[in-house]
Amino acid sequence: MTLLEAPARESTGGGLASAARNRLQQLLAFASLIVICGFFSVASRYFFTYGNFTAILFSTVVIGTLAIGTTFVIISGGIDLSIGTGMALCAVMSGVFLVDLGLPLALGVPAAILFGGLIGLVNGINVSVFKIPPFIATLAMMLVAGGLALVLSDSAPIYFTDVEGYVELSTGSLLPGVEFPNAVLVLLGAALVAGVLLTKTVLGRYTYSMGSNEEATALSGINVRKWKIAIYAFAGLFIGLAGVMISARLGSAQPATGMGYELQAIAAVVIGGTSLSGGKGSIVGTLIGALIISVLNNGLQIMSIPQEWQNVILGCVILVAVYADMLRKKET
């Protein structure tokens, strides 16, 4: 309601203008996603099919989940490099809980997700209490998690063959009547929860606030240290979720995987308009960013573009996305 009153006041109407601008930017990202899809639809007759669209969504699940979690960290002005190998560690932990310890699904899966939160908690404490720069703290965690994943799994994949219903978490189809993988529902659910938390809760508000001006936030009487730990720990839950989703899809926990996922997730976040210097970003944007990456990967492969060129094109897209964002910033 205040929004409606605003113009009546003798103000610049800045609220409406900036809200409109934010919306425009998201529209722009969404529009480029549509344009890319349109291009591939014309270029290949195999692209525009229901089966291929679900395949694209399916392939977005793991990176998308990681990217959603790390959006919080990046908006708060930090960075998390441990999400890739952390995910592998959580996948292994899921194997440990469900296969080695034989816990029931309803216990083992939450435990694996919480283990991700634990990884995030340690990151948060290192960054916030011990004042280790996030880049270094999470780089170290990346190595620790990658090594632990190998140790705990004896360097061999853990198979979930005997765990009833685990693979269905990802590949099953809960929606009646249509072929729609559960994993995509999980991703959308996670995005919804994250979106609500980011825009509607205190945690989200302080995430923006710290990324925007940490010192001012502290001077406003907010316990920056505590909230920073909370943000990393919360983002860690998504590491755990991604670990569950990747191992459910593959039917196995691959201990050596995960390296490089962090960079793809960060790329998705950046393409989605989140600023690496903090203070700005959205879950919808991140989701669109992750989708742009998946669509490009999928479309270029379907067009039979040689693999060497696929990375070149992906890199160019990231450059353009970030450059456009900088142009936008210069305007204000």
Binding site: T2, R9, T12, G13, G14, G15, L16, S18
Partner: peptide, 9 residues
């Protein structure tokens, strides 16, 4: 002032 305006603007 407009309560909804972004401060940076």
């Amino acid at each position: 002032l407009d309560p909804g305006a972004v401060v940076g603007d």
